[in-house]
Design a protein around this nucleic acid. Structure first.
Lengths: 206, 206
DNA sequence: GCAGGATGCGAGTAATTACTCACAATAGTG
DNA sequence: CACTATTGTGAGTAATTACTCGCATCCTGC
């Protein structure tokens, strides 16, 4: 996971339809392999094998191993943002608790999808500057959005909105990641209820 | 990070004082190297070099690389438990908030000590069965202890003590890990205050 | 001071793995 | 069909790295 000088080399971009298909096959295979073996043991040869293409083809689409993970992370983040947007647009709840429930559930659903892969992404983030940057930006956006939400909602009573927004995002993210890391010893929906309750009470009783 | 058959091979145990010293040197060096390079790039040769011993000597004390990390994790967990005990025995606070403040601060202090190393430990945990087991046990103990605390404290009003204990441990652990992973963009003590407030309110207004 | 055990050494080995390159197969175009 | 650009192939390479082993050095008890 070091800086790579392969990045600069020009990669041809797909002209035929099968090229795009191969790209997708590689990503899907990589997701499986990384989830099963972790990043270090998830070798590029294994990925190619699983995708049923040759190792040479793989390197025609991705200049190095890091880039594959980077694309997986990007897609995961994009999917998360989209999911949040959908949750918000679906219904217009007025109570703060309903909003928080939507948020919490959305985050949980995103992460329970493929816990192992998510674990790998979290692991490798600190070792790739590109990933660090992307994650940091994503978090800033989350906090900013939450801040706006809190600021505009009449039920919210906290002294410092910035800190509160940060805490909410950290709490939900942190707990869900804990949940993902360890095999869940407690019912997910049950924990969701309590988490929503905790956050809501915190926000309304400042 | 696979199963290793070296583990069974007998390792001599120290007779002379310098042996124990070397052991300690290895551990200290390993902590630095893992923190700086991560686990995969933190090679045993680098550790030996930093400890100013030969690679051969290193393998006289630890049968393989995994074992070194395992010992570091063990010591960290033990230190954490000890720190918690001290916090509890130091003063006898009666308010729930004071207890929670002590707990949160203890966890934060433990983790802010060497964030990078902690990151590596968290990363590797899922890849070593021994570590998984140890961590799981540690968490069970934490939850059990918290459960007892909540059960015996008159201020606590929650419907399900088990879930509440789980949530508190997850929340504190999760948020602190988030805090450690990302460069903290918000003041630590400030976040601590709010975290304590959140948890306390949750517990007292069930 | 010496015998024997404990500790230290480090060049070398076997295995792994990211990545290359010379070439083959295939698809679009006139 | 021929011709060219695009896509696919996989044996091979260079680098890395966990770990070994035969030997040197040191310490301790007698």
């Amino acid at each position: 996971m070091a800086a790579d000088r392969h990045s600069l080399r020009a990669r041809k971009q797909p002209r035929q339809a099968r090229a795009e298909l191969t790209r997708q096959r590689i990503l899907t295979a990589a997701a499986h392999v990384f989830a099963e073996h972790g990043y270090a043991a998830g070798t590029t040869n294994r990925i190619a094998e699983r995708a049923r293409i040759s190792i040479g083809s793989l390197y025609q689409y991705y200049p190095n191993k890091d880039t594959i993970l980077l694309e997986l992370v990007t897609r995961h983040l994009d999917a998360g943002v989209l999911s949040l947007k959908e949750h918000r647009d679906g219904d217009r709840p007025d109570s703060l608790e309903a909003i928080m429930r939507g948020y919490v559930r959305s985050v949980i659903d995103n992460h329970l999808d493929d816990p192992k892969l998510l674990q790998v992404m979290m692991e490798q983030t600190p070792h790739a500057p590109e990933l660090v940057e992307r994650m940091a930006r994503h978090e800033r956006e989350q906090v900013a959005h939450t801040r706006e939400l809190l600021a505009s909602h009449p039920e919210v009573r906290v002294t410092d909105i910035d800190v509160a927004a940060h805490l909410v995002v950290s709490a939900v993210g942190g707990i869900v990641h804990q949940l993902v890391a360890a095999p869940r010893s407690v019912d997910v929906r049950r924990l969701e209820d309590e988490l929503v309750a905790m956050v809501t009470r915190y926000l309304t009783l400042g």
